[in-house]
Simulated scan of single mutants.
Amino acid sequence: MREALQFCVTEPGEDEAEAGLRIAAALYTLWLTHGLLGEGRYWLDRVLARHSGAPTTDRVKALSADATLAGFQGDLQKGAALVEEARTLAERLGDREAHAIVTQADGLQALVGGDLSRAVDCFEGALAEFRAEGNLGRLIGDLVGLELASGLLGDIPRALECKREVLAITALHGETVQRAYSLGALGLAVWQTDHRRASRLLEQSLRLTRVVDDPLHAAWCLEALAWIAAAEHLDRRAAVLLGAAAALSQTVGSSPVAVPNLLAYHEECARQARRAPGVRVFNAQVRHGEAMTFENAVAYALDEEHGTAPRPGVDTDAGLTTREWQVAGLVAEGLTNKAIATKLVLSQSTARGHVEHIRVKLGFTSRAQIAAWVTEQTQDERR
């Protein structure tokens, strides 16, 4: 893809320039979820400069993607300028899809800028068009943004409504990135009022995030888990998580605090974690967290260090089908794929496929984690 983009920005011809726009805009999700925000902006800037500037939907998409990456890196002035250019082009095109894409990008700018009410209005404004088009990728991204903005404004029922729709769509299609974002968004919204539920949501989000090695979203989850740890007087754990979150976010040139409205929680967490053990111990624990790799930081947050079993806390709406619940229960009983196939009168390949789907949906890497999760769900139902 890099070679193709290099070709598009160096070869003469408008066809090559237009192809560069399409490639760069299509790679937006890859850049965002793999911590390549700077590289994404580099290529988007280059293909946009190479393009004639004619009002095309591809240019609107590229401008909107560039604006979003800029916003996540805190470059709000550049992001706003890109959104304004995209809006002008969309109006000239008279294209409803292009207008919805710009409106969504504007919502993301408002969100990372802390204007939650405007973010809600923008996300709401784009929803109808994405539904009408059947554009599920744009739709679930918009719903996640609306979920986070609504939740942070205290509209938990609206946030829950968005989450349920996101989980339903992602479960049907086996998608994990936006599913992780949705679980994390609700965790950020409820952490003050329900530590246990927030921890479960954030931990499940981390498990899914680990599947694609998404450092920015992992940093946001680690940061929120640090707030919960500090609130529960687990000061050293909070300090380690703060350090890990800061280090991961720095690798992508962003912040561990997803929305500026949450900065007060970060500051209070740091004060609390520093107060009891003292500055020297706090700083040492922060450095310990900063030195962690992505995998080690996630494992620490999930209590998977030293070979201990992960905490299987997962939001109760796991998105499993009835058959997948049956298979998960049999995995928990210790049955092999062959034994599951015999018991449920399935082919062995079908049973194996069900186990893999369950693992992906729950963000797990082993059958043992599935078994531990089923056990936890059963215990919760009894309580």
Rank of each mutant, 00 (worst) to 15 (best):
R236L: 14
H51D: 10
V314I: 05
E165R: 15
V83G: 00
H288L: 13
A128F: 02
T57E: 05
W43S: 05
V360I: 11
L172W: 05
P157N: 06
M292Y: 06
Y42N: 14
A198L: 07
T350Q: 12
L32T: 14
L222H: 12
Q272M: 14
A86N: 02
Q326A: 15
I156F: 06
F282G: 01
L263V: 12
D235E: 10
E290H: 08
R207F: 05
F130C: 03
A4S: 11
Q285A: 13
G307S: 07
L201C: 10
A328Y: 08
G114Y: 05
I370C: 11
G353P: 01
T209G: 14
N135R: 02
T336P: 00
P215K: 02
A100K: 01
A247P: 12
T193H: 03
A351Y: 11
Y28D: 10
T57R: 15
P310W: 06
Q77R: 09
A98P: 03
Q192N: 12
A24Q: 12
V345E: 14
D95A: 05
G107H: 00
V355T: 10
E165D: 12
L302N: 01
R197Y: 07
R383K: 09
A49M: 04
L48V: 13
L48Q: 11
L344M: 05
G243V: 06
Q77N: 13
T293Q: 08
L335D: 11
S150D: 03
W43P: 01
G53K: 04
V166D: 04
E203P: 09
R197H: 08
L146G: 00
T68D: 09
A185C: 06
R359T: 15
V102N: 05
I228R: 02
G329D: 01
A339K: 15
L153V: 03
G74W: 05
T375K: 09
R237Q: 14
G278P: 04
T342E: 08
S182G: 14
E304R: 10
H357E: 11
L48C: 12
V314S: 07
G187L: 02
G20F: 05
V144R: 09
V102D: 00
Q204K: 02
A218G: 11
P260V: 09
S255D: 12
P277D: 07
T176I: 12
F7V: 02
D315Q: 14
A81Y: 07
E304M: 14
E11K: 04
D58M: 01
L362N: 00
A80M: 04
L127S: 11
L108Q: 03
S52H: 00
T209Q: 11
T365D: 11
L330A: 05
L183S: 04
L139Q: 07
C122E: 00
L335W: 10
Q104D: 00
A328R: 04
A25F: 06
Q369D: 08
V212S: 08
Q77K: 13
V177I: 06
W227I: 04
L44N: 00
G151Y: 00
L225F: 06
L76F: 06
A171R: 00
N261V: 07
